[in-house]
Design a protein around this nucleic acid. Structure first.
Lengths: 138, 138
DNA sequence: GTATTTGCAAATCATTTGCATAAAC
DNA sequence: GTTTATGCAAATGATTTGCAAATAC
């Protein structure tokens, strides 16, 4: 869940994930996915852009967005959009819910539990978002 | 729930709601709330703007947003933001969940049911969004 | 060598803001 | 008469797009 993978451990994972999902490996894509795997804080596109340009290669904002769309399309990353604010991205593929702090806007994963599905609809996916005040902001 | 109130029935409701919540009545505010009460389709700000300018008075887009913020602040309307798209607004104040059609993006209300709260967090509100294909798009 | 990706700058979309005018109390 | 809301146009923030140059197969 909060699996903060080390960059070394991530390396092989990423290479394999790209191969298995037909995603052409580029440095930009590598570093985007690496960051998401190693930092469970649900980064925004802009945070990813800043992080990559600080440490590694250069990547334009447009490329970060392209990359994220490619990774989401390949099923390697999930997008989590909240209320007009910038979308957040998550490489945690295990099913889980979310908790959003009303004060600092950080997002935490919440362990999955089943909820009843409305019989009247053809439900393919669902999302549960809890809101409140996180431990740090109390 | 899908209470499609008639404009006549809405009139008194709106007047009273404004008085009780300290919202200054203006034609623009009146028509925004009336539309939301009479049309349960979770309109966007832009749809509200178009609807009002077609039928009644004129209202600038900025005023529609101001109005919506005022109504949300007064607790008369709820905002429902989905995935980067324009926010949708809802005058249905009864607790309920949502179903979003992946094809046509329409939003339907789903009858409320309780779900367990994660004990580790101080939860103040929650939102459940089901996604799938609506009856029309099947 | 062909297809795809990158980077840049400009474009787009949803929403907010500043400020003068108009309407509500 | 004072306060608050409206309308316009410009500003902002997030994201997308078009196109030439670079990179992956």
């Amino acid at each position: 869940m909060k699996s903060r993978i080390s960059p070394v451990a991530a390396s092989e994972l990423i290479t394999r994930a790209f191969q298995q999902n037909g995603v052409r490996p580029t440095p930009q894509r590598y570093f985007v996915l690496e960051h998401l795997l190693c930092h469970p804080e649900h980064a925004t596109a802009d945070e990813l852009w800043a992080s990559i340009n600080k440490r590694h290669a250069k990547a334009s904002r447009a490329t970060v967005y392209n990359t994220l769309n490619a990774l989401v399309g390949a099923g390697l990353v999930k997008e989590f959009a909240l209320d007009g604010k910038a979308a957040r991205y998550d490489a945690n593929l295990e099913a889980h819910h979310h908790f959003v702090c009303d004060v600092c806007n950080t997002v935490e994963d919440v362990e999955w539990f089943d909820i009843p599905l409305p019989a009247a609809h053809d439900v393919r996916s669902l999302e549960v978002v809890f809101r409140g005040v996180c431990a740090k902001c109390k």
